[in-house]
C-alpha cells in the first residue's frame, strides 16, 4: 500500500460557530465546531483543519479553549489557523491539542516566523496557508499562464483574501519550503465557494514546484471534484467544507466513492 490521499473537512469558525462563505464573503451558519469535529472524526476524516476566520486578538483565549475541546473529542490530526503571527500564539495552539499550526498573513508579513516555528516544533507542525487569486495585470518576472485566451499570474492574497501582496504564488511556495514549511494549504480564491471544482491548473503548478505535501482547497462541490483533483494532479490531500457541513455527503460516503475510482484512501 502507498500513502493514502487525505480527505480533510475544514471548519471555518467565527464567534464560536462554524460558518461558510462564498468567495471569502457572505457568511452563513453551519453548526457547532466541537460537534462537527467529533462527527467528522467518527465518520473517517483523515485530518481536520480549523480556521478562526475572525482572528481578532480578543478571540485568542476563546480559540484556545475551543481547540482544547475539539482535541478532547477527536483522535485524528488537527491543524489550527487564523491570525497566527507569533511563536507564543502558535505554542498556545499546539499545547492545547493541535498538531499543526497554519500561518498565512503572519508568514507574508514576517517570513522568519516559519523558520522559528520549524526550529522549535519541527517542520511537520508548520503549515503555510496560501490564498491565491488570478491577476490579469501582467507583470514582468511573474509566472504567466493563460486560460480562454486570457493571460494571468497567480497572486498571493492576505487578510482573508482581501489584500493582494504582489507575490507570485509559485515563487512564494518555493520560498516558504526553503524557510522550513512542512506543508502547503493551497486555496484558490477564484474557486472558493463556487462549487465548480478544485483549481487543477494552480494545484498542479504548486505540487510540481515544491517537495513538501500540498493540500488542495477551494471549489469542492461534490465528491467527483475530489476524484478529479486526485486524478489530474499529484496533490496529497483535498480539503472541503460545505459538502460535509450541510449533510449533502458523509465523509465515509465520499471516501467510498474515491476508493471506487482506484484512488488510495483510508476506507
Amino acid at each position: 500500500m502507498v500513502l493514502t490521499k487525505r480527505i480533510i473537512p475544514c471548519l471555518d469558525v467565527a464567534n464560536g460557530r462554524v460558518v461558510k462563505g462564498l468567495n471569502f464573503e457572505s457568511i452563513k451558519d453551519a453548526g457547532d465546531p466541537v460537534q462537527l469535529a467529533e462527527k467528522y472524526s467518527n465518520e473517517g476524516a483523515d485530518e481536520l483543519v480549523f480556521l478562526d476566520i475572525t482572528a481578532s486578538s480578543e478571540q485568542r483565549e476563546t480559540i484556545k479553549s475551543l481547540v482544547k475541546k475539539i482535541a478532547e473529542v477527536i483522535d485524528i490530526p488537527f491543524t489550527v489557523g487564523g491570525g497566527v503571527k507569533s511563536l507564543q500564539h502558535a505554542r498556545d495552539i499546539l499545547l492545547n491539542g493541535a498538531d499543526k499550526v497554519a500561518i498565512n498573513t503572519g508568514a507574508v508579513k514576517n517570513p522568519e516566523v516559519i523558520t522559528e516555528l520549524m526550529e522549535l516544533f519541527g517542520k511537520q507542525c508548520v503549515v503555510v496557508a496560501i490564498d491565491s487569486r488570478r491577476n490579469y495585470n501582467i507583470e514582468k518576472g511573474k509566472n504567466i499562464f493563460s486560460e480562454n485566451g486570457k493571460q494571468f499570474w497567480f497572486e498571493v492574497f492576505i487578510y482573508g483574501g482581501k489584500k493582494g501582496t504582489g507575490l507570485d504564488v509559485i515563487d512564494w511556495s518555493k520560498k516558504i519550503e526553503k524557510l522550513g514549511a512542512g506543508e502547503i494549504l493551497l486555496t484558490s480564491i477564484d474557486r472558493d465557494g463556487t462549487k465548480d471544482g478544485y483549481d487543477v491548473l494552480l494545484t498542479n503548478e504548486i505540487v510540481l514546484a515544491v517537495g513538501i505535501p500540498v493540500i488542495a482547497s477551494g471549489g469542492c462541490g461534490k465528491p467527483e471534484d475530489m476524484i478529479d483533483i486526485f486524478k489530474n494532479t499529484e496533490v496529497n490531500a483535498a480539503l472541503a467544507a460545505s459538502i460535509f457541513h450541510y449533510e449533502t455527503h458523509s465523509v465515509n460516503r465520499v471516501k467510498q466513492l474515491i476508493q471506487e475510482n482506484n484512488i488510495p484512501v483510508r476506507y
Binding site: M1, L3, K5, R6, D46, E183, I212, P213
Partner: peptide, 10 residues
Amino acid sequence: MKIPHMGWNS
C-alpha cells in the same frame, strides 16, 4: 518521497 512523510498507511 515527499518529506515530511505525512498521512495514513497500513
